[in-house]
Design a protein around this nucleic acid. Structure first.
Length: 772
DNA sequence: AATATTCCCGTTTTT
DNA sequence: CGGGAATATT
C-alpha cells in the first residue's frame, strides 16, 4: 500500500516538490494543531507556533535513545532495534519530525517489506497528522510503480504483468523442455530457486556466462536465458525483476536517479537486515547525493537468507556509511523479563551478530512452559485446550497465536481448534490467489491488460471448456511464433485462424469473447472483475458448488470483494493497479487485527507482530532448526534457524509455550522425532517442564499410529514384498542413497517397478505368509 | 476431447 | 497425505 506515489515528471521535474495550493493534499482530520496544512519549506515559518507544538508532542514520552533517533535529520542513520523496542514508534515519529522540520512530507520515502507493515506505518504516521504526501510502500510495490512510470526508460512495456511463482514455474518447465534438460535433474522448482538466487545477487545470464567456473551454474545458463527470453516476449516481470530492473535503471540512468533523489530526500528502509543485493543497491543509489538513508533493523531477526537477503548489509552499514550515526534501542516494552531472558539466552548462541543487551522494566512474568507430547495430535489438543482455558478465563482470542516452522503443521492445530469451537484465522493471503478459480479469473484479467501474457492466455483459452484442445493450442502458438506475433494477435488474424481447420470457428468465438471482455479495461477494479467473471463463463462454470462455505463460487465473490476493497482505498485506481496489488500480497497481509480469532502462522510471517500469548509448536530437531537433505548432506543454516526461533519467542508479551511431539505424521507415516537443540540448556529459572506427557504412556500404548519407519536396513535383493495394487513381488535391485532407498521389484504380472522405499506402499512379506 | 483413474513425487520459509 | 501429471477410458 502506498500513499502518494506520483513520480516526478520525466520532462519537467519540480526542482523541490513544492506544492501549489491546489495540489496540496487534504489535511489530516486527526491533528487539530495542524491548521494550515502540512508545513513545507516555503511556508513552514508562518506556522511555527503550531509546528513547535506538534514537534513537542512528537518528542514527548520518548526515551533518550529514541529521541536521538527521532531528531536526527541529515546523514545516514542506523537504528539497531531489538524486538519490542518501540522501533515503529521511533520511525513514525522521526518521519513526522522530518516533515515538520526539514522536509516536505512528499520528500520522504519509507520502505517496508510487507503491505501490512506499510499500511500500519502509514496509519501511524497519519495519526501524527503530518504525513500527507509521504510515500510508504513495500520494496516490490515501490519498484513496480517506478517501472510502470518509467517503463520507456527501463525498456519494458508499460503494461507489463507480474509473474508469480506458478507463472515462473510454467515458463521454466517449458524452458527446461526446450533446452532438452527434461531429465537432467532440473525441475521447474529447483531452476526457479537457483535463478531467483542469481537474480537477487544481480547475476544476469551474461554475467553468469562470464564467470565460467561453476559447472552446475553453466548447466543452468541455457534455461536461464530461455526463461528470460520468454519473460521478455510475454511482457512479464517476476518478483526479482521488479527489484533488479530498478537497481539497473537507477545505476544506468543518472538523470532519472538524480531526479528521484530530488524527489525523495529522506529514505527510510525498515527491516534492513532482510535486504538483498538489489534492495541494498536501490537504497544506496537513491541516497547517493545526500546520504539520507535511515536503516532500521535487527541482525538477530534476519530470517530471509534463503531468499538472498544478506545480513552483511546491516552488519557493515557503518562501513558503507562511515558518517553514520548509530542508535541502539535495547529496552524492550513488550515481553516479560523471563521471556526476554529466554530469547536473549537463545540468541547468544549465535556468533555472527552484534552483541546487544536486551532489558526490560516489565514484570518477571510466568515461567515459559516447555511441553512434550507423544503425538502431534496430543500436542495440538493441548494447545487448543490451553487456548480454550484462557478464553474461558477472559482472554481475547486475538491476543493469542500459534507459530510453526512449516505450514503443514497448521493442519492438526486447525482440526483441534475447530473441534474445540475456537475461532481462528490463518495467515495465508497468498493461498487464496493460488486457487484454481481465482487464477482463472485473474488470467482473464491479465490477458486483457497484457495480451502478450501467453501463460494466462493458454490457461483460459479452454476454460470453461469450449472445445479448443491441446493440439489446436499448440498449432496456434506455433503459428504465432512463425509470424512473430503474440498469440492474441494470431487469434485475431482471420486467415491464420482459418488455416487451423475445424477449430477455427471456436477460436473466432473466443477472440470475440475477449473483445467483449475488453470493456473491463476501462472500468474500475470492482466492475472489471465482476464483468469478467460473469461474461467469461467462469461464473457459470463454478456456480454448481454454490452451497459450500469454501466453494469456488464463494471465492469468486470474495475476489470481487477484494477488488471492491482496493477500490475503496484507491479511488482513482484502474484494473491494472489492482492486478499489481493482487500480485504482491503476502501471507501476513491477510491477518486481521481485532478479529477475535486466534492467529496461526509460520514463524516467518510472525516477524513484526506481537501477541499476549504465543504457542510455538514443533520444537523438534530437523523441524526447528529445519534441516533438509541435499545431495547426501543435510543442509541447515543453524544461526538463521536460531534467529527464527528468536523471532518467535520475542513475539510473546506475557505467555509463551514451547511444545514438541515425539511422533509426528510426515506425509502419511509417523516419524519419531527428537527434541530441538534450541531447548537444550535453557536456564531452569526461566522455564517449567511439567512431567512429560509422552514417556509415561508410551510403554503401554499399542502401536497403532500407522506405519512406523521400516526395517529398511534388512531389505535385500530377494526380499518378498506385497503391493496393494500389484500383489506379491520380489526385490530385484536395491540402491541405498543418503536420504532414500530405491528398490526395483518384479511382480507376478511379470513387470518390474521402481520405488523409493520410504514413500512406497510396499510391505515386507515373510516366507510363511506367501502361501495365501 | 473430456473425464476418470492411477501413479508418482516431494518434502521450508516468501515478495 | 495430498497434489499434479501421466495414462486409461469413454
Amino acid at each position: 500500500m502506498l500513499f502518494a506515489m506520483e513520480m516526478p515528471e520525466p520532462e519537467a521535474p519540480p526542482r523541490a516538490a513544492r506544492k501549489s495550493p491546489a495540489a496540496a493534499p487534504p489535511k489530516s482530520e486527526l491533528d487539530p494543531a495542524d491548521e494550515g496544512g502540512p508545513p513545507t519549506q516555503t511556508d513552514r515559518r508562518s506556522y511555527e507556533p503550531s509546528g513547535a507544538e506538534a514537534i513537542e508532542r512528537i518528542l514527548a514520552d520518548l526515551t533518550e535513545a529514541q529521541r536521538e533517533a527521532v531528531v536526527h535529520t541529515d546523514g545516514a542513520l542506523l537504528i539497531l532495534a531489538g524486538p519490542g523496542s518501540g522501533k515503529t514508534r521511533v520511525v513514525t515519529r522521526r518521519a513526522a519530525h522530518l516533515a515538520l522540520t526539514v522536509a516536505d512530507a512528499r520528500q520522504i520515502l519509507a520502505i517496508t517489506f510487507t503491505n501490512k507493515a506499510a499500511r500500519e506505518m502509514g496509519a501511524r504516521i497519519d495519526a501524527l497528522g503530518v504525513a500527507h504526501g509521504m510515500t510508504v510502500s513495500t520494496f516490490h510495490a515501490f519498484c513496480a510503480a517506478l517501472l510502470r512510470r518509467y517503463a520507456d526508460r527501463a525498456g519494458i512495456p508499460r503494461n507489463f504483468t507480474i509473474f508469480d511463482r506458478d507463472d515462473r514455474r510454467s515458463l521454466l518447465k517449458a524452458a527446461i523442455e526446450a533446452c532438452g534438460f527434461a531429465n537432467s535433474g532440473y525441475t521447474p522448482a529447483s531452476a526457479e530457486q537457483e535463478i531467483s538466487a542469481l537474480k537477487s545477487k544481480m547475476i544476469s545470464p551474461v554475467r553468469l556466462r562470464e564467470q565460467s567456473g561453476d559447472w552446475r551454474a553453466q548447466m543452468l545458463l541455457p534455461i536461464y536465458e530461455q526463461y528470460e527470453a520468454s519473460l521478455a516476449q510475454m511482457g512479464g516481470l517476476d518478483f526479482d525483476d521488479l527489484l533488479l530492473r530498478v537497481a539497473d535503471l537507477l545505476e544506468s540512468d543518472d538523470d532519472l536517479r538524480s531526479r528521484l533523489e530530488e524527489r525523495y530526500r529522506y529514505v527510510l528502509v525498515d527491516e534492513y537486515q532482510d535486504t538483498n543485493a538489489c534492495q541494498y543497491k536501490i537504497a544506496r543509489l537513491l541516497t547517493r547525493q545526500r546520504g539520507n538513508l535511515c536503516a532500521t533493523g535487527d541482525p538477530d531477526q534476519s530470517i530471509y537468507g534463503w531468499r538472498g537477503a544478506d545480513i552483511g548489509n546491516i552488519l557493515s552499514f557503518e562501513r558503507d556509511y562511515p558518517q553514520a550515526k548509530v542508535v541502539r534501542l535495547e529496552q524492550n516494552y513488550r515481553s516479560t523479563k523471563r521471556i526476554l531472558a529466554l530469547a536473549d539466552h537463545l540468541i547468544a548462541g549465535n556468533l555472527r551478530r552484534k552483541a546487544k543487551t536486551l532489558w526490560t522494566e516489565n514484570e518477571t512474568g510466568a515461567t515459559v512452559r516447555v511441553l512434550e507430547f507423544e503425538t502431534a495430535q496430543e500436542e495440538a489438543a493441548a494447545v487448543a485446550g490451553d487456548i480454550a482455558r484462557q478464553i474461558r478465563a477472559g482472554a481475547r482470542a486475538d491476543g493469542m497465536a500459534v507459530f510453526y516452522r512449516v505450514n503443514s503443521l497448521s493442519r492438526v492445530i486447525e482440526d483441534e481448534l475447530r473441534a474445540a469451537g475456537i475461532p481462528y484465522q490463518i495467515a495465508r493471503g497468498v493461498e487464496f490467489y493460488g486457487r484454481k478459480e481465482i487464477k482463472d479469473a485473474l488470467a482473464y484479467l491479465r490477458v486483457l491488460v497484457n495480451p502478450a501474457d501467453q501463460v494466462s492466455l493458454v490457461r483460459i483459452i479452454n476454460t470453461p471448456s469450449r472445445g479448443i484442445g491441446t493440439t489446436t493450442i499448440e498449432r496456434l502458438i506455433a503459428a504465432a511464433r512463425t509470424k512473430q506475433a503474440c498469440v492474441l494477435d494470431a487469434l485475431n488474424d482471420t486467415d491464420l485462424v482459418g488455416s487451423l481447420g475445424r477449430s477455427a470457428a471456436k477460436l473466432h468465438e473466443f477472440a470475440a469473447l475477449l473483445r467483449k471482455l475488453a470493456a473491463a479495461l476501462e472500468m474500475p477494479p470492482r466492475s472489471a472483475v465482476e464483468h469478467v467473471i460473469s461474461h467469461s463463463g467462469l461464473r457459470a462454470l463454478y456456480s454448481e458448488s454454490r452451497d459450500a462455505e469454501d466453494s469456488p463460487a464463494a471465492n469468486l465473490d470474495e475476489l470481487i470483494s477484494a477488488a471492491a476493497a482496493f477500490e475503496d482505498t484507491h479511488p482513482e485506481s484502474k484494473l491494472l493497479d489492482w492486478l499489481e496489488h493482487a500480485a504482491l500480497v503476502s501471507d501476513v497481509d491477510a491477518v486481521e487485527e481485532d478479529s477475535r480469532k486466534v492467529t496461526l502462522m509460520t514463524l516467518h510471517a510472525a516477524k513484526g507482530l506481537e501477541f499476549d500469548s504465543v504457542h510455538l509448536i514443533g520444537m523438534e530437531n530437523g523441524l526447528l532448526p529445519f534441516r533438509r537433505e541435499d545431495g547426501g548432506h543435510s543442509r541447515c543454516d543453524i544461526e538463521e534457524e536460531r534467529r527464527l526461533c528468536f523471532v518467535g519467542i520475542t513475539r510473546a508479551k506475557k505467555r509463551l509455550t514451547l511444545s514438541l511431539a515425539r511422533y509426528r505424521m510426515m506425509r502419511g507415516g509417523a516419524v519419531r522425532t527428537t527434541r530441538s537443540p534450541f531447548l537444550d540448556g535453557l536456564p531452569p529459572e526461566l522455564i517449567e517442564c511439567p512431567a512429560s506427557q509422552a514417556d509415561s504412556r508410551s510403554a503401554d500404548r499399542p502401536v497403532d499410529r500407522g506405519r512406523l519407519p521400516r526395517d529398511i536396513e534388512h531389505w535385500m535383493v530377494g526380499t518378498l514384498v506385497r503391493h496393494p495394487n500389484h500383489g506379491l513381488g520380489q526385490v530385484t535391485d536395491i540402491e541405498r542413497g543418503p536420504s532414500r532407498t530405491h528398490v526395483r521389484v518384479r511382480f507376478r504380472d511379470g513387470l518390474t517397478r521402481a520405488y523409493a522405499l520410504e514413500f512406497s506402499d510396499l510391505q515386507r512379506v515373510e516366507f510363511d505368509e506367501v502361501g495365501e
